[in-house]
Design a binder for these strands. Structure first.
Lengths: 158, 158
DNA sequence: TAAATTTACGCAGTTAACTACGTAAATTGT
DNA sequence: ACAATTTACGTAGTTAACTGCGTAAATTTA
């Protein structure tokens, strides 16, 4: 059998390859926190820095700015609340909005987390040889896929 | 709040962005098959072409050539067997090996699936402006992350 | 030839994203 | 001012990848 079938499939495996790389990074970040003895999950960092810089932020705002579906943020912040890293309350002026803020516990660990992610950014930059091209391609891809989905683009060709 | 926080976070959101793009592609490919009235899941294509070109292939071989964990292939091929797209049997010369082969049903639809994925490849090429750079970066990233994981690289800097 | 190791498989459980759908509050239009 | 629409949130369920672990067959080694 052809040893390089994956590469022969070229663009066709893009989806799964992206997913696998993402999974690997997330899994290994989780391990890292464990090794450091920190009770933190990988993407909490994104939420924590966002909340820190804005005092109190709503679920949907977080989702919008980080690009996640709001439901993902709900389950993420629920875990963070349970473990004491966020406080949640209703916005007084708009009772639909749930806003979260940092706790003393999260304020205490934030500097350490920021330090870790400064290195994380360096690591990623090194993995990509400091080349911004990939990020630009991702921007373009995301934008185009929002205009018309992958499947719809294929259907358009049939 | 800064509207472009995601981009400001730059490299730091790489992992989640990769995952979200991958999810989007997979989801939308699933939709596409549904719209076409085909009882097929997105990654089956990869397995089917591999099996087609090699007559009978084992689980671990498939995993190795496509770059998946073997357990993922087990669950994938199990579904395909259930729905009549693969036949499985034990290798006579090595009873540990489970080999799969195409059924008449899968041989019948393969041409259609291949047609779809020829277009799929075009679509991806267009999304990336026919630039191979991104794939090369992925190769490099995968290779480097296999040598030393993302988390370990961060730990090395602390 | 028997013990130790490696290989192939499969089950169970975890993960982080998603969609679908429902409810309640706020806003808009008539 | 009230009906219709939009917005914000939350619950439930799905997905495709993963790890961990156990078993059985094959291969290697002493």
């Amino acid at each position: 059998m052809n040893k390089d079938l994956v590469k022969d499939l070229g663009f066709r495996t893009l989806g799964t390859r992206l997913k696998r790389i993402a999974d690997k990074m997330s899994h290994s970040a989780r391990d890292m926190y464990k090794k450091l003895g920190m009770d933190i999950e990988p993407n909490w960092y994104l939420v924590l820095t966002l909340v820190k810089e804005n005092d109190a932020v709503s679920i949907v705002e977080i989702a919008r700015y980080l690009g996640f579906a709001h439901q993902s943020i709900v389950s993420m912040t629920n875990k963070m609340i349970k473990r004491g890293y966020l406080l949640s309350s209703k916005d007084e002026n708009d009772l639909r909005r749930t806003v979260v803020r940092l706790t003393p516990k999260s304020e205490e660990i934030l500097p350490e987390i920021e330090k870790i992610w400064n290195h994380g950014e360096e690591v990623i930059a090194e993995l990509l040889d400091n080349n911004q091209e990939l990020l630009k391609h991702l921007d373009v891809m995301e934008h185009r896929l929002n205009e018309s989905s992958f499947g719809d683009r294929i259907l358009g060709k049939l």
